[in-house]
Design a protein around this nucleic acid. Structure first.
Lengths: 226, 226
DNA sequence: TCAAGGATCATTGTATCCAATCTGGCCATG
DNA sequence: CATGGCCAGATTGGATACAATGATCCTTGA
């Protein structure tokens, strides 16, 4: 119980498939792997120093998470979302996260509201840098979701948020419209939750998420298929 | 050309992994593979006459779809949901499918409403047999979802419905409470959609799905882990 | 010049093989 | 009699090997 704590394994406590999964999610979310890119399992395998098999499994998992699309016998491509698909994902997130806020409004305490305010300030200060902004924005929503007692619901909301992240990232790089009213809008969300009225909280978050201008998000979303 | 080789046909148009996936989904949804059952990849592989690899991939995919749970180095078990998890899934489906009905109410035409009425009659006639009932019930909801112009949303709703199917099936076998008011409740759903009022349609479907008695559903849901 | 057809190559899908890990039972020891 | 370590079988995770499919490009004939 003293010596065996750390092994000599190349990936401590991390299976090869988990490594590949995290690596690919990271690449896709960050935009380094653009939508439509053909992902060759062997290349990824060599990059990570593992064999093709765990990469294949990771790709399959990514496919059922919506990040990639598998075409039979013709490999996997990074899912490239068109305008309508982005809109649909935002709509789904709006519905789910709004419902989550209904539950949050009933549970959140003083400390939670304070955390949200702090996250809001961080978000305000992060408006200049895209990466920083996205991180802060995720944190803001996550702070509230921490008070939602529905783990699967929260997981699904995060999954959708991550799936749309590359498009948000692209947009923020060329247009700051979306950032302009951010602070006020998120402050409204806090206020609506503070009201403790479930209907207000749900309606508020739904509107907040749907307020996104999808046409801006989808500027480069489609038409770039391999 | 027959007995010597058991694997004669390459399953035209069907990859081994897709075969394994469909097989396992079928086993799980039907309840033949009970929650908590330890699924050994090699056994499944031999049953299907393929190797262990495509089965592994199918299992991995099933895991990210929620049907199975993978424990590192200790294999995969059929996901066994407890009362709270079942309730959460029903809640999520309620929220999503209710929103879908909002869109359906705005789009459905005379023909769609007629189809729903027919499905309702089928549902009524199917109340005696569990399998028949579940099929008819799925069909009823699917008829309405056909008029929802959001493919991913519909897919997610179906996924959740399938994930909870074994528990519904178990319940229906021992208790007919859930079946008793089915016809009236589903008739109400149709009426609410017929009103063409999105708010009414959404609120109606939410209530319809949440009206399920989760405690009945979870009778044998947990505690059976191997 | 250009289109059709086939050879070649890259990549995927599947099978088999090996190492690492877990499980359970057996035996020694206190 | 209880406890703990150790060995054996079973099972998983991963790597390599092989077959099959699709893509590419080059030849060849009009």
């Amino acid at each position: 119980m003293d010596v065996a704590t750390e092994r000599q394994r190349p990936d401590p406590g991390q299976s090869a498939q988990a490594l590949a999964h995290r690596y690919l999610v990271d690449e896709i979310r960050s935009g380094r792997l653009a939508g439509g890119t053909h992902v060759v399992a062997d290349k990824v395998a060599q990059t990570l120093g593992v064999s093709r098999m765990p990469v294949r499994e990771a790709i399959r998992q990514l496919a059922s998470e919506g990040f990639m699309t598998i075409r039979s016998n013709r490999g996997a491509v990074v899912t490239s979302l068109g305008r309508d698909e982005i809109a649909e994902l935002y709509e789904m997130r709006a519905v789910l996260e709004a419902f989550a806020m209904r539950l949050v409004a009933e549970r959140i305490d003083r400390q939670g509201l304070d955390e949200a305010e702090i996250a809001l300030q961080r978000l305000d200060r992060a408006r200049a840098d895209v990466d920083w902004f996205i991180t802060a924005h995720d944190q803001f929503h996550d702070v509230l979701l921490d008070y939602c007692p529905r783990p699967r619901l929260v997981e699904e909301i995060r999954r959708i948020r991550h799936a749309t992240e590359p498009y948000l990232r692209m947009t923020l790089r060329v247009s700051s419209t979306a950032i302009r009213n951010t602070t006020r809008e998120h402050a409204e969300v806090i206020e609506q939750i503070r009201s403790r009225d479930p209907d207000v909280a749900e309606a508020g978050m739904r509107e907040h998420i749907l307020r996104i201008d999808v046409d801006e998000l989808s500027v480069r979303g489609s038409g770039k298929d391999d």
